[in-house]
């Protein structure tokens, strides 16, 4: 994983060089500072130590600033990892008052700390290249913000709670991120979660991304309701009375990725219907009347 990322990085670089005329010497490879050290500081420190905020008089947004140090003096002693304030601050226990980043922000990963340590140890050079640090870990790409799966349910929390109570189902946030959507859970009382309940959930249906309906009395009539739950990613209909005919009602669910039809009467006609769903990754059909037990038919992982 690590090496392929690095490889890609180098390839892009070479490719850029080609565009630039291709004759530039290998010395133009990215410096270790630019490729590894700066991104770590950018990610964790520059909000407080940059052009806007300069806490303790320290800026970390360029090599020169970093080496200029803070009000109290330099923070990097080339070649002396233990003696460098920069290293000390990022390796303190998370509970220490002096730990950086401060304010309980996530601490540096072991790999990130190692990058800084290797760099200081090798003389805190602005020019040494990536290739000079064969043992340095690669950087993981910053976590991209999660793609919203549904609108935030927060405004509707009261209505959601009222419907939960009315219908005896649970509408559980998938995570603390409100745009991760809700899971409809029926496991506590599957027999209560029938077609009428699904129809009754319409006012909050757009928040639901995962409908757990195994062993409920849901029939094809219920699928009509589900057909308008625009943000559904997954539906579990294990051991319900749904049939192939009912699946046609789901044809508008463009985000649907997984549908579980284990132990249902769905047959090959249903599989044909499902095939038209643009986002579908897997339909589970074990114990159904279809001639395959899953669609698309398994390709080994």
């Amino acid at each position: 994983m690590r090496s392929s990322l690095e490889l890609k990085e180098r390839r892009t670089w070479r490719w850029l060089l080609c565009l630039a005329g291709g004759s530039v010497a290998a010395a133009a490879e990215p410096t270790f500072y630019a490729a590894r050290v700066a991104p770590v500081l950018d990610r964790h420190c520059v909000v407080c130590h940059g052009p806007e905020k300069k806490k303790a008089g320290l800026r970390l947004d360029s090599f020169d600033h970093l080496m200029a140090g803070a009000e109290s003096g330099s923070i990097v002693k080339p070649g002396d990892v233990k003696g460098s304030e920069l290293h000390r601050r990022i390796t303190l226990p998370a509970t220490d008052e002096e730990v950086m980043p401060s304010d309980g922000k996530p601490s540096l990963s072991a790999d990130e700390i190692k990058i800084i340590a290797l760099w200081i140890e090798a003389g805190a050079s602005p020019t040494k290249s990536l290739a000079d640090f064969p043992t340095a870990p690669a950087l993981r790409p910053a976590r991209v913000a999660p793609v919203p799966l549904a609108p935030s349910w927060r405004e509707k929390a009261a209505e959601i709670a009222a419907l939960e109570k009315k219908f005896g189902v649970k509408l559980v946030p998938r995570s603390q991120v409100p745009t991760d959507g809700l899971v409809l859970r029926s496991a506590s009382a599957p027999q209560r979660c029938n077609d009428q309940v699904l129809a009754g959930l319409a006012p909050v249906a757009r928040f639901i991304v995962d409908a757990e309906l195994a062993r409920t009395p849901v029939t094809d009539a219920g699928l009509k309701a589900l057909g308008s739950w625009e943000n559904l990613r997954a539906i579990d209909l294990t051991r319900t009375k749904v049939t192939s005919a009912g699946l046609a009602a789901l044809s508008g669910l463009k985000h649907l990725e997984v549908i579980n039809l284990t132990d249902t009467a769905v047959d090959d006609a249903g599989v044909t219907t499902l095939r038209a769903l643009p986002g579908l990754k897997r339909a589970w059909l074990f114990g159904s009347k279809a001639t395959v037990t899953q669609y698309p038919v398994a390709t080994a992982p």
């Binding site: 405004e155 929390a157 009261a158 959601i160 709670a161 009222a162 939960e164 109570k165 649970k170 509408l171």
Partner: peptide
């Protein structure tokens, strides 16, 4: 509190 889901209550 209107914004607090029932379960949390």
């Amino acid at each position: 509190l209107p914004q607090v889901p029932l379960g949390l209550k």
